[in-house]
Amino acid sequence: MTRLPLLPRLARLPRLARLPRLARPATALAAGAALGMLAAGPASAADPTVTDPHVVAHFDFGAGETPENIALEPDGSADITLAYAHEVVRVDHHGDREPVAELPPVANPQTPNIGAAIATGIARAHDGTLYVAYATGTEETGIWRIATDGALEQIAHLPADGLPNGIALDERCGVLYVADSARGVVWRVPVNGDEPTVWASGPALEPSADLPFGANGLKIHDGAVWVSNTAASALLRIPVGPGPDHAAGPIETRATGLVGIDDFAFTGHSDTVLAALVLDSELELVRPDGSHKTVLTAADGLSNPTSVAVHAKKVYVTSAGYFVPNPDPNLLLARISKNKL
């Protein structure tokens, strides 16, 4: 059985030291909105409800099968990256799984903050092509494409001292947006193999001295790139500008106090989010005004959740089991619905 590095610096930090409160940035929202973001608000009749959580698949922690990110197939099957096994597997509603691809092994990985080679973010194109972020600390660091016939190709090299993490695909523009947790930036990566560029940067995306994981999860939603910053316990929104270069607009802080936020997903067309809080094994519902509440916990089956996806009336949550005494890496499904006003 493989012994995992398990992010040792993060695991050893006391909770308060490893997750400092976010200092209010110069680009913060108006005072009234900011106050609403700093504390959990009361439940709203319009809040989506998350019910019937149940684990449909378990993974082998000792073999490096630590689920990290999800992309959904049209039939609701989940394509999941297994970080330390650097594999992609497909899991259906019944928990049955099949292999999709394995990223190439790296002889001497030097991934920042981790040391091991890990598969992180995943995105799916409409034709079934998959894109996977791979962090190795070597020239293999970057974005890899998995064709529908299983062919594997590195389409972008990213700096070896970076840690590409969450990714999202803009098919209309032919680019991927990639959160870099070590460098604290967002990359714009053309899928045609052209040179990646730093699209967004700044203190709001950066890691901290105590917690070396900044920009983490990433989604495209309603004309903007949304990014979680684990070190800052924050959810950010970056408008995508007009014109051929689609430049990044000012970074907006949309929610704070999300201790240990990893990946997240939108529940629908609104700005309501479900966020995985990896350290406390919680799923948090974040409202458009920035207030938030816990909707699932370890008692429901979460074991250091890393990513969230929503499809029709289902919520998918992967858990990696990184920091708990008895890790249970798994895929959990739940039902999501809207309350009537």
Rank of each mutant, 00 (worst) to 15 (best):
H58P: 02
T111I: 04
L72R: 00
V89Q: 05
T49A: 08
N69I: 02
P42W: 09
L35A: 12
A119K: 04
T81A: 09
T27W: 04
Y84W: 01
Q110N: 14
A34S: 04
D92P: 07
T111E: 15
A33S: 09
G62D: 15
V56Y: 00
R124Q: 14
A28F: 12
E98P: 07
P48C: 05
L103Q: 10
L72H: 07
E73P: 04
A85W: 05
A43T: 10
N108W: 08
E102L: 01
P20R: 09
V89D: 02
A26Q: 10
L29E: 13
E73S: 14
A31N: 10
G36L: 11
G64P: 08
A83R: 02
G62N: 14
R21Y: 07
R124A: 06
E87R: 10
T49S: 10
R124V: 14
A85L: 00
H126T: 14
A117R: 06
G41W: 12
D96P: 02
P109R: 13
S77N: 05
V50F: 03
N69L: 00
E87S: 10
N69K: 01
A46P: 05
M37N: 04
D79K: 01
A117V: 15
M37E: 06
G36C: 09
F61R: 11
P20Q: 12
V56W: 00
F59S: 00
D96Y: 03
A23Q: 15
T27S: 03
H58F: 05
I114E: 14
A83S: 11
A107L: 15
T51S: 14
S77M: 02
D79M: 03
R90W: 05
R124P: 08
T111N: 13
P104Q: 08
L38Y: 09
L103H: 06
T51D: 07
E65A: 12
E87F: 08
F61Q: 02
A116L: 10
D79L: 11
V88E: 00
H93M: 12
R21E: 06
R21T: 13
P109A: 03
D96I: 01
P105N: 08
P112L: 05
T66P: 13
P105D: 14
R97A: 05
H126M: 11
R97D: 04
D96S: 06
L22H: 13
G115L: 07
A46V: 10
H54Q: 04
L38V: 07
A117Y: 11
I80V: 10
G121D: 02
H58N: 04
G76R: 09
Y84Q: 07
H54F: 11
A85D: 01
P53D: 02
A101C: 15
A117L: 12
E87T: 12
E68M: 15
P48V: 04
D47W: 11
H126N: 04
R24Q: 09
A101M: 04
E102H: 15
P99Y: 08
A33G: 13
A101S: 13
P48K: 11
A34T: 07
